[in-house]
Design a protein around this nucleic acid. Structure first.
Length: 423
DNA sequence: TCCAAGTCAATAGC
DNA sequence: GCTATTGACTTGGA
């Protein structure tokens, strides 16, 4: 439902059947001969060519709530079905690098948690999906790219600059941009497993270590402090995303029974609620987790945490089953005690997203009626994927807390008043 | 100044 | 050759 509506409205906004590639003058799609002028700046791609960067931004701003999970799912399907790579898709359609695309597709953040900038790729994806011809075009580009590549390889001097759109990804490696070479690139730091372990352990104890702690860690591990700082930033942010996914999946699982396929597939009705609902609410789950730094400095809601939030309330306890993937084990071990400190801060909560889950064409509808999916979203089914009892207990607690929050949110939403997030 | 979000880009792994 | 991972960087808000 909402999906199609979103699509529709977006399309209408754009007023072009295929804004994505089609109109692109600057687009690389065009003539094979055209130097893909635009590639130099990946960030300003092109898809919506007819529109300036501003336009896309406006589009994003006006865009209805989109089901990011569903969109990425469909994009993944289309890409795999047509054997299209992330690089090509990313560089030509989204203006992002392969790594970013991979990340985006694998761990889409809920709409409500995205900033305008973060929503942009999803709007682009949605627009791209709107027109099936776009796939064909991308495939054409792929062919052309391949051709150009062969040409370069086999012809002594390639007469023309290959038009490949992704030239960005290729050209520079070809020495197209000679000068950057001169400055030695910093070798990439690769943390050893033990170092990571140590950092994770430190994280378990203090997700927000003080400068002093960071210093100590850096010394002990023989790393630069900036590396340690970066590591904490990255880890926090990645764990957060990991949780989004987990919640979304938990939601779709518990929902699976009801709807044919939890996935996004065509219908967004179902999942849109997954993603959406989750989005809107999830963040609030962390609200009670106030933190303190080493110094005891309140890590409080720095941003938009609800003013009156009772940060003191007993914390949600468990550090969100922290640790993405492999960490599970690690954290499991150390988790036992970690206590209190969670990487999450209330901040997330209201996060300039007054746009509650309610907003827009949310599937279940903003309104009064509670979308069942909402409730079930956090109701971690007993058996479902439960790894162990403790995990379950933890989940149950979280679910209870989240559901409680959701309940309040829904109540607030149904009042249709500007909501004051007070939790 | 600190942090989150978003991204790049090197690299590991298939 | 492609995707996933991840350290580093940029931007912007508070």
């Amino acid at each position: 439902m909402s999906s199609s509506e979103s699509v529709k409205s977006l399309t209408e906004l754009v007023q072009q059947p295929c804004p994505a590639i089609e109109t692109s003058k600057e687009g690389k799609v065009q003539e094979p001969g055209d130097p893909p002028a635009s590639d130099s700046q990946p960030t300003t791609p092109l898809p919506l060519s007819g529109h300036s960067a501003l336009s896309i931004q406006e589009l994003v701003a006006m865009s209805p709530e989109l089901d990011t999970y569903g969109i990425t799912k469909r994009v993944k399907e289309v890409l795999t079905d047509n054997n299209l790579g992330q690089r090509l898709f990313g560089e030509t359609i989204l203006g992002l690098t392969q790594g970013s695309v991979s990340d985006l597709l694998a761990r889409p953040k809920p709409w409500h948690k995205l900033s305008l900038k973060g929503r942009e790729p999803f709007v682009r994806m949605q627009l791209w999906l709107n027109d099936p011809n776009n796939v064909e075009k991308l495939m054409d580009m792929k062919r052309m790219e391949k051709k150009a590549y062969m040409k370069r390889r086999h012809s002594s001097v390639s007469d023309s600059q290959p038009c490949e759109p992704s030239s960005a990804g290729i050209d520079y490696s070809q020495g197209a941009s000679p000068q950057p070479q001169h400055q030695l690139k910093k070798p990439r730091v690769v943390l050893a497993p033990e170092e990571k372990e140590a950092l994770k352990r430190a994280y378990q104890q203090k997700p927000y270590p003080s400068p002093k702690t960071i210093e100590e860690l850096a010394t002990q591990l023989n790393l630069k402090t900036s590396t340690v700082i970066n590591w904490f930033h990255n880890y926090r942010s990645r764990i957060r995303r990991e949780l989004f996914i987990e919640e979304i999946q938990a939601g779709s699982q518990s929902q699976a029974g009801a709807s044919d396929s939890p996935s996004a597939r065509s219908g967004r009705a179902a999942h849109s609620s997954e993603g959406d609902s989750c989005d809107g609410h999830f963040p609030f789950g962390m609200e009670t987790l106030a933190e303190t730094t080493d110094e005891g400095r309140p890590r409080g809601p720095r941003r938009s945490s609800p003013p009156g939030s009772h940060s003191s309330g007993e914390p949600l306890e468990a550090p969100p089953n922290s640790a993405p993937k492999e960490d599970a084990s690690t954290s499991a071990a150390s988790t036992a005690g970690p206590t209190g400190e969670s990487p999450y801060r209330p901040k997330e909560s209201s996060e300039k997203s007054p746009s509650l889950p309610s907003t827009s064409s949310t599937p279940a509808g903003p309104g009064p009626q509670k979308p069942p999916s909402l409730q079930s979203l956090f109701s971690f089914p007993e058996a479902a994927g439960s790894k162990n009892t403790r995990d379950n207990t933890l989940r149950k607690k979280k679910a209870a807390n989240l559901n409680n929050i959701i309940h309040r949110l829904e109540k607030a939403a149904s009042r249709e008043e500007p909501v004051e997030w007070e939790f």
